[in-house]
């Protein structure tokens, strides 16, 4: 099936972007796909500066040390999707927007996670990582999580975004998140090391973002039958994304609503 691809590596996507703009683009894609102005779309992207996102139902203030983020130059944004807090830095991030009823977007939420994550699993295997889908919405290697994924459905469309961890920066991550007690921080870092992994650890080498992005494209082609047509955001999508970044994802009314 045909998918529009927006990818900075080959030039159809922008260089790394702020958290507010990345979330604005994902929402703008939902609008344009739902109105039939844009085809089903896969976007591969990065973040600059690094960003902490929290799930739709989380309190940004309760989960994130906003002062630490400010002093470290890290953005903090609440997502359109549920799930937990994520530190976006050394990772490959994707989003996919499909009309409900598309072969990868059946009514069943659990089934659609499985179908879309199959592309990621195939991409990771392409790189030599023995990845497997772990329902509801994770991908693991050797029982340790390497990818988290989150989905929302609005305006007749599915939006799923997620990450593939390329490196782990647990000390930095936990310095940006609020933990129940400072003395537990060491234990949380140890627990996370046991539960989470990254491509550098699995492959035993540092991977270039470009290589990870290429593997993901191959994975979606192989496991989902995707045929890519590269095209950047339209001018209207770009404008709407910037509006959403300014009027929603960088405002306290949105970020601190819960």
């Amino acid at each position: 099936m045909k998918l529009r691809l927006i990818d900075s590596v080959s030039g159809s996507g922008a260089l790394p972007l702020s958290g507010a703009l990345n979330m604005g683009i994902d929402e703008a894609l939902v609008g344009s796909v739902s109105r039939g102005e844009a085809p089903p779309t896969l976007r591969l992207y990065r973040w600059a500066p690094p960003c902490v996102t929290v799930g739709y139902f989380q309190s940004l203030e309760a989960e994130v040390d906003l002062e630490a983020c400010r002093s470290s130059g890290v953005d903090a944004v609440r997502r359109l999707t549920g799930g937990g807090a994520v530190f976006h830095d050394a990772e490959l991030t994707y989003s996919i927007v499909l009309p409900i009823g598309h072969p990868l977007a059946p009514d069943g939420i659990l089934e659609s996670y499985r179908l879309i994550c199959a592309g990621l699993v195939a991409g990771l295997r392409e790189l030599g990582a023995e990845a497997s889908f772990e329902p509801i919405n994770d991908i693991a290697v050797g029982g340790r999580k390497i990818s988290g994924n989150a989905q929302t459905r609005r305006q007749g469309c599915l939006l799923q975004h997620g990450t593939v961890l390329m490196d782990l920066e647990l000390e930095l991550m936990f310095s940006l998140l609020k933990v129940p007690a400072e003395k537990l921080k060491g234990k949380l870092i140890e627990d996370s090391k046991a539960r989470v992994t990254c491509l550098r650890e699995v492959l035993g080498r540092q991977l270039a973002y470009e290589d990870a992005a290429l593997a993901l494209r191959k994975g979606f082609a192989e496991a989902c039958g995707a045929e890519f047509e590269e095209a950047p955001l339209s001018a209207a999508e770009d404008l709407e994304a910037r509006r959403l970044a300014a009027e929603r994802f960088s405002t306290p009314e949105w970020n601190e609503r819960r």
Binding site: G55, Y56, F57, Q58, S59, A62, L80, G82, G83
Partner: peptide
């Protein structure tokens, strides 16, 4: 009442 957390709910507005 505020029910917050790292769960998922669809549709979000219904929650």
């Amino acid at each position: 009442a505020a029910v917050r957390g790292d769960f998922f709910a669809h549709p979000e507005e219904a929650f």
